[in-house]
């Protein structure tokens, strides 16, 4: 059973369909980017998953159970939502101690997660004086308190400076390597592209694409291999003889619908030396705009 499974999820607010028949799963040990423009329905989906709003139809479950049905949810799911907020008069340490008490975690975990997110020195300061980046780190510390199986991060790079963003990337990769399922929602594609294994793209509340990052990057135009050889003409003939379409480009040949591995095999069989071989993929932004209809 998938750690997170969303099946036929719909949510209507006062006549407006925010999410429409959305279905996808995320896997353990992988980072899944949940992508879409602002207003696409990402936060609504996450809130339905976390039991904060009631779906109009469909289900959103963790290992087959709704969030409200989880025993000690902090040991199974850690979540940082975009509007995560803290009592300004409480210190970070006390904020985490309250959560530790709620989830029956030892108070030693508080010091551990504070160290993990780099807030040990600021632990006894009131949160009202924290920067946005520090609050983001505190939210992540709270999510990690129960060492959960699933980590959900809603726009996690908001408010983080470049070193903070790099730290966040390292954190999510580390969590995935430890076998955790990580779901990151974002509208800033460039910031998650380096971290994610899989992507789920939604727009206007509906699923537009899902799969590995490479699959979705390929988009609806498919893969194109760019190849350069010592003798481009000989390679072009070999490829055409093998039944592959070939187009000339300024710096070599374009072979649509054929993987670099297949092109390499044809070149090897023909005894043509290659000097360059790579897939030409559209940028994630290009693929994203094509999928969502957003002009960027």
């Amino acid at each position: 059973m998938a750690p997170v499974e969303i099946s036929g999820l719909s949510k209507r607010f006062s006549g407006v369909l925010a999410v429409n028949d959305l279905s996808f799963e995320i896997e353990a040990g992988r980072v899944t980017g949940f992508l879409g423009p602002n207003g696409a329905g990402k936060s609504t989906t996450l809130r339905a998953l976390l039991g904060l709003i009631r779906p109009t139809a469909g289900t959103a479950t963790f290992g087959g159970r709704r969030y409200e049905e989880l025993e000690r949810p902090s040991t199974q799911v850690g979540a940082v939502l975009e509007d995560a907020s803290f009592h300004p008069g409480r210190t970070a340490r006390n904020h985490l101690r309250v959560l530790a008490a709620t989830g029956d975690h030892a108070f030693e975990r508080v010091d551990a997660v504070l160290a993990d997110v780099g807030l040990s020195d600021a632990a006894d300061r009131r949160v009202g004086g924290y920067s946005m980046g520090m609050k983001q780190r505190l939210g992540i510390a709270a999510a990690l308190l129960g060492d959960p199986e699933v980590l959900i991060l809603d726009e996690p790079t908001n408010g983080l400076d470049p070193p903070g963003i790099a730290w966040m990337r390292g954190l999510v990769r580390e969590q995935a390597e430890r076998g955790r399922a990580v779901l990151i929602s974002s509208h800033l594609l460039a910031e998650v592209a380096q971290s994610v294994d899989d992507v789920v793209v939604i727009s206007h509340g509906e699923l537009r694409a899902r799969g590995t990052l490479e699959d979705v990057l390929g988009g609806d135009e498919g893969l194109v291999t760019v190849v350069r050889a010592q003798d481009d003409d000989r390679l072009a003939r070999a490829l055409q003889d093998a039944g592959h379409p070939v187009q000339r480009s300024g710096d070599g040949l374009l072979v649509p619908g054929v993987s670099p591995e297949e092109v390499g095999v044809v070149a090897g069989d023909a005894g043509v030396y290659l000097v360059g071989l790579a897939p030409q993929v559209r940028s994630l932004e290009q693929a994203f705009f094509a999928l969502t209809g957003d002009k960027g």
Binding site: L52, P73, L81, S85, F86
Partner: peptide, 18 residues
């Protein structure tokens, strides 16, 4: 009511969904 005022109610419900 302060849970709504300071918008901490989301975190509170996540920690204690019942």
């Amino acid at each position: 009511a302060g849970e709504w005022r300071h918008r901490t109610i989301t975190g509170t419900f996540l920690a204690a969904p019942n």
